[in-house]
Design a protein around this nucleic acid. Sequence first.
DNA 1: CCTCACCTTTACGTTGACGTAAGCGCGCTC
DNA 2: GAGCGCGCTTACGTCAACGTAAAGGTGAGG
Lengths: 157, 157
Amino acid sequence: MPTELRRPERTFTIRQLCLEFKCTPRALRFYEDKGLLAPARQGLNRVYSYKDRARLQLILRGKRVNLSLAEIREILDLYDKNDGGATQNATALRKFRERIVVLERQREDLDHAIVELKSACANLEESLSNRPDLLVETAPKTAPMARVGQRQPEAVR
Amino acid sequence: MPTELRRPERTFTIRQLCLEFKCTPRALRFYEDKGLLAPARQGLNRVYSYKDRARLQLILRGKRVNLSLAEIREILDLYDKNDGGATQNATALRKFRERIVVLERQREDLDHAIVELKSACANLEESLSNRPDLLVETAPKTAPMARVGQRQPEAVR
DNA sequence: CCTCACCTTTACGTTGACGTAAGCGCGCTC
DNA sequence: GAGCGCGCTTACGTCAACGTAAAGGTGAGG
């Protein structure tokens, strides 16, 4: 049945996912190597399910908030085990809480940095409005600059 | 007089700063090597001023929000030039704005991750309250669970 | 004088997260 | 049937951010 093609049973090739998430095949294979992904196979070729896609999403989100692949794998494993048995839940809970502490600390730093940068921008704008001769063409100043959730060419180490 | 010890003219040894900011001498020398710091010298020994200390603070904050040392150096340089002449301000402004976009994106991811982890914690706590035999000493469970975007009373550290 | 504790330098080692290159298979199509 | 475009594997290269070791200078204190 053709309508099923957009159903959750849908699968993805490695390239499709790479295009969608702006990463390289090498990266996906690397994640697989490290045990973060385990796509099915058709012969040699990798076949990614919706679940795999979701995992990838989590991986990338983790990376953006500065988790190592090892940490991400831990978390994914914990999620998995969580579904299954309740054996290691206490450990999981502890780990999750640790992570939350770190992430909240990071968010503070982030807020701090943003505030500082914005104030610096304000200063710069002022000194530029006093000395308009310094203005070089850089960005369209009239443009409705940046919807928030935008992709940037990989600044994260 | 001990009161003078807290004046802005105060200087610091490498070890003092390391203790205060929980880093290693190697790291500070490395930052210097990369042009992020330039402490004075007494003979061979490094002598850090209050200004150096402030720079270090910025460096560490930058690191915590996932900036590379190179990026941090750029920003510090921009700040420096900003004090001096107004030559490159337009460039600085552009760079600052770019950074803000990236950081705000990161903050979104961070919030997302925190929410997810908290919800996961809630689940775990529930399944643990059903099976209290699994509990190990972790944290005070009586603490009133935070709502999503909560401010921290800025005291920890 | 000797040891300690701290500072210095130079230089090689390590870890994480991939990049890049080499070499080959499979299916399409011109 | 030759060449592409995409896929696979194995294997070595790279870059950042330090760690760690080796070898040594300097002043306080016993």
